[in-house]
Every structure is written in C-alpha cells, then in structure tokens.
C-alpha cells in the first residue's frame, strides 16, 4: 500500500486528508497515481486537471510525475506553499 496525503486547498476540495492506495502494476510513479485519482472524475478530475498547479512529494521530498512509487511510500499532493 502507499499512503496518499492531501493538504490545504486540495484537502478541502477533495474532502479527504489521507488515503491508502494499492501500489502495484498501475501506480508505479507519481504520474500514474495522479492518473488513477483523475479517473474518479468530479472534483478529482478538476483538482488534478490542466492548469492546476499541484506540488508532489514522495517520502517528504519534492518529486515530479516521473518519480517512482513503491509499496510503503508516502506520496503527498498540495498547492504552492505560502508560509513565512
């Protein structure tokens, strides 16, 4: 399983902060995880659609769509940061 986390505006839009996904033949990298989520349609398709800036992280390091994902990984999606 991989743990998928959502933060801030994205967490509110999707109505969830955390879920577990089966890592397997489909979810091999971050881009594939995004495709799985988009396939749910509705707010998921919208949140990960064209023109949306979503930052990705794997195991708490900033990642890209091509970053590999394996069983036990923590994958996070969030909007551009606004601290400080």
């Amino acid at each position: 399983m991989i743990e998928v986390l959502f933060f801030a505006r994205l967490r509110e839009q999707l109505g969830t902060a955390k879920e577990r996904l089966q890592a397997g033949s489909e979810a091999t990298d971050v881009g594939a995880v995004i495709k799985l989520l988009q396939r749910r349609g509705g707010v998921w398709e919208e949140a990960f659609g064209d023109g949306q800036t979503v930052i990705m992280a794997v195991n708490q390091e900033v990642a890209s769509a091509s970053t590999p994902v394996k069983d036990g990984d923590e994958v996070a999606f969030f909007p551009p940061v606004t601290g400080g």
């Binding site: 940061v81 606004t82 601290g83």
Partner: peptide, 10 residues
C-alpha cells in the same frame, strides 16, 4: 522558506 517549506495560510 517562503517557496520551499510546506506551510499554507488561510
């Protein structure tokens, strides 16, 4: 910090 640390303001 402003562009790399994961904080969000509401």
């Amino acid at each position: 910090l402003k562009t790399r640390a994961p904080f969000w303001k509401k």
